[in-house]
Design a protein around this nucleic acid. Structure first.
Lengths: 114, 114
DNA sequence: CCCATAGTTCAGAACATCGGAACTAGTGAA
DNA sequence: TTCACTAGTTCCGATGTTCTGAACTATGGG
């Protein structure tokens, strides 16, 4: 179990961030982490909506988010502490995270009919 | 050769848009179309940077952009007229395109060292 | 009709993702 | 220490997606 890799702020790449957040599950996970400041275990996220996400898939999702520079993960005893690197991303790509998260919260419902 | 499918504005989905723009080639293509208003042939885009993108790959890229609702394609004689649906996307997901295109233009170069 | 040009579709190889089973790490109790 | 439990990672086979050359379609001009 090798230690985690976290890219430096100046190494953040837009394509990695977009790819990470292009998956609705990952976007939901990241939204939870970003809005709740710091989410502990993966297990608390296992039930997104009504689907159950297997641990191995969750682990892979966290890895993608981590390596895109969206979250920082560190062991805290037996579980994981994940927190969002919103400030880093905002510094490098201003407005990006806000726009994406807004798009997702306004997205699923088909807006007010005009 | 079936006619092209273009999603309606209210059917635009954020994950499709992020997925489409998560590929640097597609992002570059879209940037060209968006900034130049309307790019004709695929062939003018065959050389992005210094790589040559084969026609079949280009065609697939255009399809992804089209089905994400980012561009509208229509035949004009023997070639293709593509134009960006920036207004549609902006209406549905305000600020999203701007933030993404900004991220890409500021992204590739490793920013000013602090 | 024949040819050239612009782009699409097909098919198989290369690559990525999903998820169950096995594994690793930490904690607490006997 | 050893056992058991919990949280997460890694492995690997199945499934799905992307890439790209070759064949095909569509259009316009001799």
């Amino acid at each position: 179990m090798r230690p985690f890799f976290h890219p430096a702020t100046e190494d953040l790449r837009p394509d990695a961030i977009l790819h990470a957040l292009a998956d609705p599950d990952r976007a939901a996970i990241f939204t939870r982490i970003a809005t709740q400041g710091c989410v502990g275990s993966c297990a608390t996220l296992a039930a997104l909506g009504d689907r159950i996400i297997p641990k191995s898939s969750l682990s892979a999702h966290f890895k993608v988010l981590r390596e895109a520079g969206l979250i920082r993960s560190e062991r805290q005893g037996v579980e994981m502490r994940n927190h969002a690197r919103c400030a880093d991303v905002e510094m490098r790509f201003p407005g990006l995270l806000t726009a994406i998260l807004n798009a997702y919260t306004s997205g699923p419902m088909p807006g007010p009919r005009s």
